[in-house]
Write a protein that binds this DNA or RNA. Structure first.
Length: 939
DNA sequence: AAGTTCACG
DNA sequence: ACGTACGTGAACTTT
């Protein structure tokens, strides 16, 4: 057997692991982020398992400066400081590596790639096959040696990949791997702040090398390169030479490859158990160490699991010293459905279904899940349903493709589905209920949505079934891809999958969801979020289901006409821009626009500010351009019109449902961290209103027929009322109690004048401060926003803080509360955890501090609207109205109202909105309402 | 898949 | 010296 050496680029892998999991970080019960430790360990273990190396080493960078830093002070200068979590992970990772009895190699004055390069070539000369484990493309240059390869570990769904010299050449479009350093020298590397030749990218570099073979030869022939490119090359000669040197990996650093040191040996299990326990690697620990870890865990935790995986208290078990934290979060961690005997039943005859029903109607809680032909609940057909009420046992009932047969199946289930005293448990039940609603069935009992339970327990993470199962049950369920393939062109249809396979998949989903409920449920109490769960989120599900089912009518004819008009006007703006610029280019490309504006036309403040080094061309930048030339207004005109056309006018008709002729948005109830809803497919929460041309689009949203009218009702200044109320600021509370215009009242206080003396200008500035305050804005931001000096902005803010000292107290109070408790909360007890609040990094901490100020405000307003929706829906049902609530836009509710019901409905809506969530300090809640034959008119 | 811009509250 | 106002979703370009 040949000898295989793997050399790991530790920091690159650690970074990747950390950021791969950043959206759903792994946090221990002590609040430590273990993304990097987890990801790295996973990669290392999988590698050992799969690739069976005979020899292995992990290489680190050291803090000592390298020759590159000394030669070129900008080297890696723009690199952001690593997050604290990530830096803190390194000692743990080194302990883990030592636990595996693998050497860590590092050398002051050299980077990991130099060490790896040197060792790789030495080992290869000694007859090894060498794999350098790294995602870094620069390593390509080392493949000059034929037995050296790059091994890219699997990442985000893509498989691992072994790169040889041929593949590297293909990637860069070059002839020989020796040219890797030439290409890097020419194009530079933004990540390491290696400049290269400005304006030369990957493509251009490859082109140059095709013609001239080496970087030196390119430079030698710079005079014969024509046009702008030649100019760039001639100007960038010095930079190119330095860049090539920086990009060249040193292969003769003072290390020696002693093969016996790098040979894989037996692990130090004790050391590994200690680290894994500390890091709470439950499943991973067991996967790596097997029973050695299991025995320890169970004893340490003082909890065992019964046959079905339920946590059972063991009275006699004593906690091992120092292992308090292991189950402190309250989930039963060691459940593994794999080890639990499970029975998944296929109920494919009416007799079997009946037997199931007899049992099921006795239950108080049943987990329910549907399988359908698609992701859009308004278009999908039912393929089957699964149920579970005993952990490990689940039932799957298939539905035939013919609609009448599916209806017959549902009919048999009617006594169960409509039983009023059942609690239906499910993951994202809105989807399942919406599917049922298209068959005119509904779940009449209570519901318990595990997705929402997780949302209130942990609003920030993601919560797919797969993730939740892994996190709370330590179990990886069957992936849907195994049934219907990956998303995209190859994705198949659930209808075409063999019924036995669907049964296993679907039944498992119901089984897992039931167990998930048991794991999550104690967390509601522990985290003190029961109120927001039971009084806000859970009851809202049925309301949203009804709204999504209803949809809204869109006047397609109007939009088609408007589209033509916008197209003509946009074209005119576009032509104007090309005239003014003197070139034709793609005006939709910010990159090309930036080059035209700043390189060709040399317009004044050269704001080069995007992180990729391109010119920023956003509206704020363009408006600051010298002279406000007409090209700017033409660009902005073009942008406005094309935006309106592509995002709304042309897109909305495409979203019309084939069955209803209406547009059905989908509300995401567990996405926005503050507690707001979000809307997608299409997003109906960002329909234009601020510009004349934009608000026209609202005319396309119309009542269902001539007997109906749209009603729009919105809260007045809800966020400011909330901050007044929860801060208890006297002046602001008083202004609201007296029914004053809040921005005028604010201006009067800030400028020390009477309300009547406030000018438009002053009111405008005060309004900006009021909004800025909600978000934690500083003097810089206010100055930028209002186009005033920082001194003036500071003065306004100082005055504001003095006059509204209660607001200042609130802001400081929230930050201190967060620092002490690690979270902030809304009136309904909705929490947001802010683990960066004590960070030593100014920027990171500042972000958390602004969240601490803003989240309770935005979140309390969200609580209030949601509660209003629940009340209004209930009242409308009680009155048996034909009118329907159809849209929510954060502080606004829209209704498709029957004309006969308008006079009942108006007070019903307003009263329920005002009374939904009374604010402290007697701050009144006001709402306003309008009606019309379209949304614009109603607003 | 990431970055940029822009629509809303 | 740095960055600077919160929360979203979608379209388009570029990698």
């Amino acid at each position: 057997m040949s000898k295989k050496l793997f050399l790991l680029d530790a920091m690159a892998l650690i970074y990747r692991a950390y950021y791969a999991l950043i959206r759903s970080p792994r946090i221990t019960s002590k609040g430590i982020n273990t993304n990097a430790q987890f990801g790295f360990t996973n990669t290392l273990f999988d590698l050992i398992n799969k690739e069976k190396p005979t020899h292995l080493a992990v290489c680190f960078d050291t803090h000592a400066p390298t020759e590159r830093h000394i030669d070129f002070t900008d080297y890696k200068a723009n690199r952001q400081e690593a997050p604290e979590d990530l830096l803190a992970s390194i000692p743990d990772i080194q302990r883990i590596i030592r636990g595996f009895n693998i050497p860590c190699v590092e050398l002051d004055g050299y980077e990991a790639d130099d060490v790896i390069g040197t060792l790789a070539w030495q080992a290869a000369d000694a007859g090894y096959e060498v794999y350098m484990v790294t995602p870094d493309k620069d390593y390509g240059q080392l493949l000059i040696h034929p037995s050296v390869f790059i091994y890219k570990p699997p990442y985000m769904g893509s498989k691992e990949e072994v790169l040889d010299a041929k593949k590297v050449c293909e990637k860069w479009d070059i002839a020989r791997v020796e040219q890797v350093v030439d290409i890097l020298g020419l194009m530079g590397d933004a990540v390491d702040n290696i400049p290269g030749i400005p304006g030369v990218g990957e493509k251009t570099a490859a082109k140059l090398l095709k013609e001239y073979d080496t970087l030196e030869n390119v430079l030698a022939n710079a005079d014969s390169i024509k046009g702008a490119l030649g100019e760039k090359v001639r100007n960038g000669k010095d930079s190119a030479i330095i860049s090539k040197k920086l990009a060249t990996i040193i292969t003769n650093v003072p290390v020696q490859f002693h093969e016996e040191d790098y040979q894989l040996k037996a692990w130090n299990n004790e050391a590994l158990i200690e680290v894994f326990t500390e890091l709470e690697f439950k499943t991973l620990g067991k996967r790596i160490l097997g029973d050695a870890f299991n025995v320890f865990q169970t004893a340490a935790a003082g909890v065992q699991t019964d046959l079905f995986g339920n946590a059972v208290e063991t009275k006699t078990a004593a906690k091992a010293d120092g292992e308090e934290g292991l189950l402190a979060t309250g989930f039963s961690a060691d459940k593994n459905i794999n080890n639990t005997p499970h029975e998944y039943h296929l109920l494919d005859t009416p007799e079997k279904v009946q037997a199931f029903l007899n049992d099921a109607v006795q239950q108080s809680e049943i987990c329910f899940d549907t399988e359908t032909t698609g992701l859009d609940a308004n278009e999908a057909d039912l393929v089957g349903m699964s149920f579970s009420f005993t952990p490990g046992v689940a039932f799957y009932i298939p539905c035939p493709p013919e609609r009448d047969k599916t209806l017959a199946v549902l009919e048999q289930l009617r006594p169960l589905l409509e039983k009023p005293d059942i609690t239906w448990i499910g993951q994202n039940l809105k989807y399942d209920m919406l599917v049922l609603k298209w068959y005119a069935f509904e779940l009449k009992g209570n519901i318990y949505d595990t997705m929402l339970a997780h949302y209130v327990v942990e609003p920030e993470g993601r919560r797919s079934m797969d993730l939740l199962s892994a996190q709370y049950l330590g179990y990886e369920p069957v992936h849907i891809e195994e049934l219907i393939g990956k998303k995209g062109k190859t994705q198949g249809n659930m209808r075409d999958v063999a019924v036995d396979k669907i049964k296993d998949y679907a039944a498992e989903d119901a089984d897992i969801t039931l167990q998930l409920k048991h794991a999550l449920h104690p967390q509601l109490k522990e985290k003190e979020v029961e109120k927001v769960f039971y009084e806000v989120e859970n009851p809202l599900v049925k309301v949203l289901t009804a709204m999504e089912f209803e949809g809204v009518k869109v006047d397609v004819g109007f939009l088609r006409e408007y589209s033509k008009q916008l197209e003509i006007e946009a074209k005119q703006f576009e032509e104007n821009v090309y005239q003014e610029a003197g070139v034709r280019f793609n005006l939709s490309s910010p990159r090309q626009l930036g080059e035209v504006l700043f390189d060709k036309l040399k317009l004044d403040p050269k704001a080069k500010k995007t992180k990729t080094g391109q010119y920023a061309t956003g509206e704020d930048v363009l408006l600051k351009l010298a002279g406000n030339s007409s090209i700017v207004s033409d660009i902005l005109g073009y942008r406005e019109l094309t935006k309106l056309r592509s995002t709304y006018v042309d897109a909305l008709p495409e979203m019309i449902n084939s069955k209803t002729g209406r547009v059905h948005t989908s509300y995401a109830q567990a996405v926005a961290v503050t507690g707001r809803l979000s809307s997608n497919n299409p997003n109906l929460q960002n329909i234009p209103i601020r510009t004349e041309r934009g608000k026209e689009i609202r005319k396309a949203f119309v009542p269902r027929d001539a007997e109906h009218t749209l009603i729009s009702a919105d809260y007045s200044q809800i966020e400011l009322r909330v901050i007044a109320a929860i801060s208890g600021d006297e002046n602001m509370c008083e202004a609201f109690k007296q029914g004053k215009d809040i921005h005028t009242a604010t201006a009067a206080k800030v400028y020390g004048i009477a309300d009547e003396e406030v000018t438009k200008e002053q009111r405008y500035k005060a309004k900006s401060v009021n909004f800025g305050i909600i978000y934690g804005q500083g003097a810089f931001g206010l100055a930028d926003n209002l186009g005033i000096s920082r001194a003036e902005a500071k003065e306004i803010i100082d005055n504001y803080k003095k006059e509204f000292s209660g607001i200042t107290r609130y802001m400081d109070g929230m930050i201190n509360f967060a620092k002490e408790h690690g979270y902030v909360q809304t009136l309904m007890g909705r929490k947001r955890w802010l683990r960066d609040i004590n960070s030593s990094n100014f920027t990171v901490r500042g972000f958390a501090e602004r969240n601490a100020i803003n989240s309770p405000i935005q979140g309390t307003a969200a609580d209030m609207v949601k509660m209003a929706m629940i009340r209004i829906q209930a009242a409308m049902e009680k009155e048996k109205l034909r009118s329907r609530m159809i849209l929510q836009v954060h502080d606004e509710l829209v209704f498709d109202a029957h004309n006969d019901e308008l006079e009942i409905l108006k007070p019903l809506i307003l009263e329920n909105m005002k009374a939904a969530l009374p604010l402290p300090n007697e701050v009144p809640v006001e709402a306003e309402l309008g009606t019309g034959i379209n949304w614009l008119e109603a607003h």
